[in-house]
Design a protein around this nucleic acid. Sequence first.
DNA 1: ACCTGAACACCGTTCAAGT
DNA 2: ACCTGAACACCGTTCAAGT
Lengths: 204, 204
Amino acid sequence: VGKLSRSSIVTGAIAQADLEGLEAVTIRRLAHDYGVTPMALYWHFKDKDALLDGIAERLFVDVQLPVQTEDPWHTQLRATLAAFLTALRPHPSVAELTLTRLFLSDAGLVVTDRVLGLLRSAGFSAEEAAQFGSYLLCAITTLITAEPGRAVGTEEKQAMLSALSAEKYPHVVASAPELTACANSDAYYSRGLDLLVQGVRGLS
Amino acid sequence: VGKLSRSSIVTGAIAQADLEGLEAVTIRRLAHDYGVTPMALYWHFKDKDALLDGIAERLFVDVQLPVQTEDPWHTQLRATLAAFLTALRPHPSVAELTLTRLFLSDAGLVVTDRVLGLLRSAGFSAEEAAQFGSYLLCAITTLITAEPGRAVGTEEKQAMLSALSAEKYPHVVASAPELTACANSDAYYSRGLDLLVQGVRGLS
DNA sequence: ACCTGAACACCGTTCAAGT
DNA sequence: ACCTGAACACCGTTCAAGT
């Protein structure tokens, strides 16, 4: 699996999570995959939380921020949020780690600062920018966590929802297929971005 | 701590989480608090995940859905989301459990069905309702998770953000106080609701 | 129906020690 | 600087057994 280093461990951890979920990411297992003793990882990371911080940092590093332009702020905001989304989409099971780690890495701060800047240029106060800025980024993460069909047991769940009483839950039953599998996830994400950007615009 | 039952265990678990966070909720610890063997809990819950499902269910049960009226759909939608928010706010550290459990309890289905119904009455298709419905509920949960200052180490973090380079992160530094502590959380939540409801309205 | 005892496999982490 | 060995405290969970 290659040499042991901060960065290779993070890569390995993300790969592990992609395959088997975040709860499968374990110091001991990672160490085993690298043919090394669990304690070896403690030289590279203070503790497991520091490793999780490292994963979140990597996600922020992967964000390809758009170049700043003369476009209206909401166009740039959408592009920025889309860039964040693009970085998260390949790794849905670690996406949630960013929720509480916006300020814990240089890369996270860069992304956050960009969003705050765009909101300020839209006329929002420092307080409003702070509230909406972090929230918008978190809401992007949630877009991934909440993608229909991403929760476990698709076939099982599908059957469950369809079997529900159509009298008690008429609309859930009516939308059962769309709730359990995302037919067009690009459209889902695109609309999600629209919702958020339209939402902020409506407040200014 | 009272008698042992499904419902009392859930109550105890929530209390534990409120005090020390979700990661402090442990089968063994709960059992110890009830003066009982860890395995006793396994009679009431199949496994720990079932206990977490029970916690999420309780949160949905606590939702006081508004009576349906002749008000426009977006007014009712806002009231419904606000009701969900109100149920979650007292228990921020377990709020995240609802994210993946909208369909796992009767109470969750009732709340979800209401939201879907309102979206259908607004003219959205079954597919759009499915996508936005679950997302809106999840976005409410995130509003809580992302409340400025809720992440750990307020004083420490405050200092950290203020000490950042104002050249690299001008807007983060400018908003440092508002990012680390929520001066007016009612206003924060109210604006968050506005953002989401305005967002959906913008899409119809 | 409801709980216990003993045991298992697995965690994260510390500390002293090796090279 | 980088890793190991042994140990500790803590998990969730199974299984057979008790009342």
